[in-house]
Design a protein around this nucleic acid. Structure first.
Length: 541
DNA sequence: ATGCGAGGCGCC
DNA sequence: AAAGGGCGCCTCGCAT
């Protein structure tokens, strides 16, 4: 059963179950909770929980979570509209439910709001529109029609369900937060940088390194300025093209070591230092703002908090609560496995039946595991440097279907066509600027760049779908009060009471198998998802 | 004062 | 000669 929902004002909302009239309720959370529990419908159809249909999970679900309500499944109109518009070659058109509704009726289409949750009331902002469950139901019906019109509706329905589940999970992770010990974080920072400095000062150890750098170059300058660094090297008689670490690490100059140390620590200080913690950590929980499908490939992004770029050194401050444990799991060599399954390449699929795919391939590449890895990565990323051409030639010969699969994607991109993931997510069309560029003198370069993008898109986007599906399945298997608290492309973290650890570890393995079955059906390709129960994130690897 | 691109580097 | 995909987000340095 579908139930269209619109929320506001206050705690009120409007509900419209399939085939019924919309009705206003004063306490939306209470009404939703009752329906989810099955008490209100008066019938147990056996079809499972209702599917909640709403304009945007970010606008509805957080308030429900605050009221203690958890829902099994939903259909997020905004995310689905984004998927459909992309499929229909209309990337970039506004994807909000109101925009979709306006298009249906030939009315002026409102622009998307960029930050629905951070949106601030200003003097100039218009009143929020009244909740409209009929609008929600109407757009939903239209989307269901459009989904049936795609080449493979079964796959696309799975994509929509997984994406919507992702929206639930993102909200729940924001609600729950990842354990983050402020005291341990402060201790770590103090050890690396010295005590927290007063406003505007560099931490002591950072300042000491800056002084060492200045001394080595015989004059003060700002080590945060790449231009000044290049100039300093120049006057020391060393010509460097850039100040990247790998570029200068082999330069023989006494300033290099302290400079590299400075850069590393300065980054930690400014990205994940005390000020960051003040903003993002509350009561020993880190709550980033996840953006579902924030990346065109369907990967998640964050709009703050840098949750997807936490330095590994910080993992030691992610510690389970007393009596609880962290179950950390990451998919091993996900992307080459995805390629093997998608391409239907028998040889590669057989290798992907092993836990170490690259080792299984080593024999085909002269016994070198590293060569196998470079070949696969080059095929998926469009790499051409070093030994790549030679190894790609081997791949073409030994694993022709996998090779051809990514080559076809690259050709399509170079020709300005779009490509799709396994479930139907579609890459953006080339920009007008690209079309201009590609017919100009530098056209070859632009074409190859886009070819690398589409080559990678088909793999990265499908890997993201597998991970999203895994998470959606896992969410349904988790025993309360276990909760997903972190997700990073191909890695998940569950926070649970220690006595549930075994059950959660088993759930991860089951979810990986189910995700594989849902995407690829019968396939020899395995997707190992090793989960470990640890007290501290740093112990997981 | 504010905006923005570049350089750089963290994560996958 | 060099030539790998996707991000976020810091500072710098210049433009407005």
């Amino acid at each position: 059963m579908n139930v269209a929902v619109a929320s506001g004002p206050g705690t009120s909302g409007v509900l419209r179950p399939d085939g019924q009239e919309a009705r206003t309720v004063a306490d939306l959370a209470a009404a939703v909770r009752e329906i989810e529990a099955g008490r209100e419908t008066g019938r147990d159809t056996g079809a499972g929980a209702p599917r909640w249909v709403w304009a945007d999970t970010r606008e509805v679900y957080p308030a429900l979570l605050d009221a203690g309500v958890r829902l099994a499944r939903c259909h997020d109109l905004t995310l689905t509209e984004g998927l459909l518009l992309g499929y229909e070659g209309r990337h970039g058109e506004p994807r909000s439910a109101r925009a979709a509704h306006a298009r249906l009726h030939g009315m002026p289409v409102p622009e998307d709001h960029h930050e629905p949750q951070a949106r601030q009331a200003t003097l100039f902002e218009e009143e929020p529109p009244p909740p409209d469950a009929d609008l929600v139901a109407e757009v939903h019906a239209d989307q269901l029609r459009r989904i049936e019109a795609v080449a493979d509706p079964r796959r696309f329905r799975l994509l929509v369900a997984a994406e919507s589940a992702g929206a639930l999970i993102a909200a729940e992770m924001g609600h729950e937060g990842m354990p983050w010990r402020r005291d341990a974080h402060d201790e770590l920072l103090t050890g690396l940088l010295g005590p927290r400095p007063v406003h505007g000062m560099r931490p002591a150890k950072l300042q000491a390194l800056a002084d060492q750098v200045s001394e080595a170059f015989g004059g003060p300058f700002n080590p945060d300025s790449p231009q000044q660094i290049v100039r300093a090297f120049k006057s020391a008689g060393v010509s460097v093209a850039s100040t990247r670490a790998h570029e200068i690490k082999d330069v023989d100059h006494p300033g290099v070591a302290p400079l590299l140390a400075y850069k590393e620590l300065a980054r930690i200080y400014s990205f994940h230092g005390w000020a960051w913690a003040d903003q993002w950590v509350r009561e020993d929980r880190f709550r980033p703002e996840y953006v579902v499908a924030g990346v065109v490939s369907g990967r998640w992004a964050t709009s703050g908090g840098g949750a997807l770029q936490i330095p590994k050194v910080m993992r030691r401050v992610v510690v389970a609560d007393e009596g609880w444990t962290l179950v950390v799991a990451d998919a091993a060599q996900l992307e080459p496995r995805v390629l093997a399954a998608m391409a239907g390449d028998g040889g590669l699929a057989r290798a992907a039946g092993q836990v170490d795919l690259y080792q299984a391939l080593a024999q085909a590449f002269g016994g070198e595991r590293d060569h196998a890895k470079i070949a696969l990565l080059s095929a998926m990323y469009g790499g051409t440097s070093g030994d790549a051409p030679k190894l790609l030639a081997v791949m073409r010969q030994r694993f022709p279907r996998a090779y051809q699969f990514v080559e076809d994607a690259a050709r399509a991109g170079e020709e300005g066509k779009t490509v799709r993931s396994w479930l139907g997510r579609t890459c953006p069309q080339p920009s007008a600027r690209w079309r201009e560029l590609v017919s100009g003198p530098e056209g070859g370069r632009a074409a190859r760049d886009r070819g690398r993008f589409t080559r990678n898109f088909v793999v990265q986007a499908t890997a993201a779908e597998w991970a999203l599906t895994l998470m959606a399945v896992l969410r349904g298997l988790l025993p309360a009060p276990a909760a997903l608290v972190f997700f990073q492309h191909d890695e998940v973290m569950v926070h649970c009471p220690a006595e549930l650890a075994d059950e959660v570890v088993a759930a991860v393995a089951e979810a990986a198998e189910e995700a594989t079955r849902l995407l690829f059906g019968q396939t020899p390709v395995r997707f190992p998802m090793q989960a470990v129960a640890v007290r501290c994130y740093a112990d997981a690897k």
